[in-house]
Nucleic acid binder design. Sequence first.
DNA 1: CCCCTTTTTCCGCTGTGTGGAAATTAGCTT
DNA 2: AAGCTAATTTCCACACAGCGGAAAAAGGGG
Lengths: 250, 250
Amino acid sequence: MSVQSIERALDVLESLAEHGGAAGLSEIAAKTGLPYGTIHRLLRTLLARGYVRQESDRRYALGAGLMRLGGVAEGMVGAWARPYLARMVELSGETANLAVMEGDFVVYVAQVPSPRRLRMFAEVGRRVLPHSTAVGKVLLADRAADDAVTLLERTGMPRRTPNTITEAGAMLAELGRVRALGYAMDLGEEELGVHCLAVPVSDGERVVAAMSVSGPAERIDAVDREELAEGMRGIARAFGAELAPVSGER
Amino acid sequence: MSVQSIERALDVLESLAEHGGAAGLSEIAAKTGLPYGTIHRLLRTLLARGYVRQESDRRYALGAGLMRLGGVAEGMVGAWARPYLARMVELSGETANLAVMEGDFVVYVAQVPSPRRLRMFAEVGRRVLPHSTAVGKVLLADRAADDAVTLLERTGMPRRTPNTITEAGAMLAELGRVRALGYAMDLGEEELGVHCLAVPVSDGERVVAAMSVSGPAERIDAVDREELAEGMRGIARAFGAELAPVSGER
DNA sequence: CCCCTTTTTCCGCTGTGTGGAAATTAGCTT
DNA sequence: AAGCTAATTTCCACACAGCGGAAAAAGGGG
């Protein structure tokens, strides 16, 4: 069982983030559906600890404390993966992501944006269902078929776009293809017009993460998939090798 | 009044951060002094929302959700200030910081590190008392004398190093000097061997922030203060001008 | 295989968090 | 200026959510 007030505090912080980092109390109330008194009390607590700031017009904004926590969290995985992601950006010209499985969700844990003007928006920290993304397919493909089916039954396979695969049978076939090819595609299955190519990251015995590049459909479709996938696999392999060793410190 | 469970959840997150981003339950218990059952329940809530992750060895680590919130928070002020801070780094060769007053504390909200090998460690998000830092003096100097004295009485003026100014009278004289010169120095008053020079950022009517450069005493002392301060004031003025306009959107 | 350590679950009591509604403040409009 | 509206902030009695001690379970060495 979860702690209600913490969940609500997180709702408040997330709604602030969705409003671009700052919002009035009533905007938060509209978004979260919580009563005013409650939100105000939560905000005061966060305020006292520096995780939220109040601007001169009384609006609330995400505070500097979050920068610190975020920085440490990012330092953990992100900085580790960043050089490899940067090489993928160099290779493909597109935004590169690192994602891991967390429960039934795929979570993006690091990103290096493409230098191009038209590029993917930051989605670090976002949680998505695996069936509609390239990284999700790669991560699912490593599981036993019945395990994957169980998960898909639990989550359902909601249709995100007309291209989304919504049938378990079709998904199993797709996962087989992913295993055979060694990479997965997302052809506008999560968001129309956005295509991705993902490859697995293995620490030697298991697939622990997936790395992908994503960008506008036209640009992604223009490249030779096999060739791009081969380049990405090389980078993912190097990253995986760094994860593998005897765990290092402590 | 604050919400207990949120405060405690923040304690837990902070203790994780202090442990370098990951720790076992008992390490957290030792640091926070909270009972095991309580910590575990808090962690489960944070876990369910992706703000904490559990590694295979059952240790807990800061999660990707924080990267997202931190990113948005940083995006707000930091990205805004970053180009200006970068110019200060270029000008001085030292790490540049942006700090604001929050309650009785000075909080560092953005930083651009020096390219040099020997440089200040990231302290974004850190809260310090104003009396022992250059940015703090700049921010205090904008206040009425009795206002500043009240604040200093509230916080006390703890001695951080042998150089710390710990007497209200001496501090008032120092603040007068800061107003007259248009910049403040910190000569190892917060940390021995670290010197800083800070200038105010004004949005046209009030000092809303302070920008500083800091580095090893030898390097900071080697430059012409007046000249460096003049250059920094120019940059701070430009930044302040960007903050001033009719607030922009909405 | 057994013992020791660390993590996880459980459950009855109490003190903490809740939220409706009133008071206050800020920002407009006349 | 004064009055109005829309927002934020404070208050309080009740109820139940969260607390934490202690027992159970899971690891992990030896």
